[in-house]
């Protein structure tokens, strides 16, 4: 149930501003692809075009093609809501539903998909929490509010919520940037485990993290303020970090700018 993503000639706009320009890449299934690059280079924007979350911002639009195996995500008859049920997302700041219990948070997506029946829900909630390495910490307080957990636990709860609906792809937008090192490690372990089931795309500011968790790495850059972000190169992570093709990539990973 992991699918390949093929992007070709993708432009994304905020109103009249071109945010990312002409991006083409292939994202392999059952692997982790990391997006790195300086702030404002459009890596988060690009990530959000992969589940059509970009367009929920007023005035934002996308041109180009994103294929999920044989399905065109931007096809004329495609419902963005259906896309988002197939391509899950985890955000920079943990955002569990504040009024819902831990259980209800995980079950939320299932309920949206029309899953009824307590035993079925119980099973999936437990399985998702186990997959998110959170079950042992919360199994005795499933009825307590999700917002009462620590930041790292909340983020794993959000991951459990995202994977409960069995998406094809899991997008993660800097999932550790609001977390302490221990929680970060927990999430990284989780990513390594989840890539056996899902296609995972992770945006990160942290190059060590990209090197640790990803199989392939894409480097994004901007020519200057106000210019659109571009994909500089994408390759196997080891290649990007040892012998990149582009000078800009080398400058970035060696810390010469950004």
């Amino acid at each position: 149930m992991a699918k390949r993503i093929e992007v070709s000639g993708l432009h994304a706009y905020y109103g009249g501003t071109l945010a990312i320009e002409d991006i083409s890449m292939t994202i392999e299934p059952r692997s982790v692809t990391a997006f790195i690059g300086p702030s404002g280079c459009g890596k988060s924007t690009f990530l959000r075009t992969l589940n059509r979350m970009h367009e929920v911002i007023p005035g934002a639009r996308v041109e180009g093609k994103v294929m999920l195996d044989d399905d065109d995500l931007y096809g004329p008859s495609v419902d963005p809501v259906a896309v988002r049920r197939t391509v899950g997302m985890v955000f920079q700041r943990p955002n569990p539903f504040p009024t819902m219990s831990i259980y209800e948070n995980v079950a939320a997506g299932l309920r949206l998909n029309g899953v009824r029946g307590k035993s079925k829900l119980d099973d999936v909630v437990e399985e998702s929490l186990r997959d998110a390495n959170l079950w042992n910490e919360v199994k005795d307080r499933l009825g307590k509010p999700g917002a009462g957990l620590s930041g790292g636990q909340q983020q794993r709860l959000c991951i459990a919520r995202a994977i409960a609906v069995q998406p094809q792809v899991l997008l993660m937008d800097e999932p550790c940037s609001a977390l302490d090192p221990i929680s970060t490690l927990a999430i990284e372990d989780l990513v390594a485990k989840l890539k056996n089931q899902f296609t995972i795309v992770i945006v990160t500011h942290n190059m060590q993290q990209a090197a640790r968790v990803s199989d392939r790495t894409a480097f994004f850059n901007i020519a200057g303020t106000g210019k659109p972000g571009k994909l500089i190169e994408i390759d196997d992570t080891s290649t990007i970090f040892t012998k990149p093709q582009e000078q800009a990539t080398e400058d970035y990973i060696t810390g010469r700018f950004g």
């Binding site: 979350m53 955002n95 009024t99 995202a162 609906v165």
Partner: peptide, 27 residues
């Protein structure tokens, strides 16, 4: 209502009305 709450439900594949039920009205 914080944007993060709205996007939480949208990213799960909520329609606009489902987003309102899950994120807006409880808040």
């Amino acid at each position: 209502v914080p944007r993060a709450h709205l996007e939480a439900s949208l990213a799960l594949g909520a329609t606009r009305w489902e987003m309102i039920k899950m994120s807006v009205l409880p808040y």
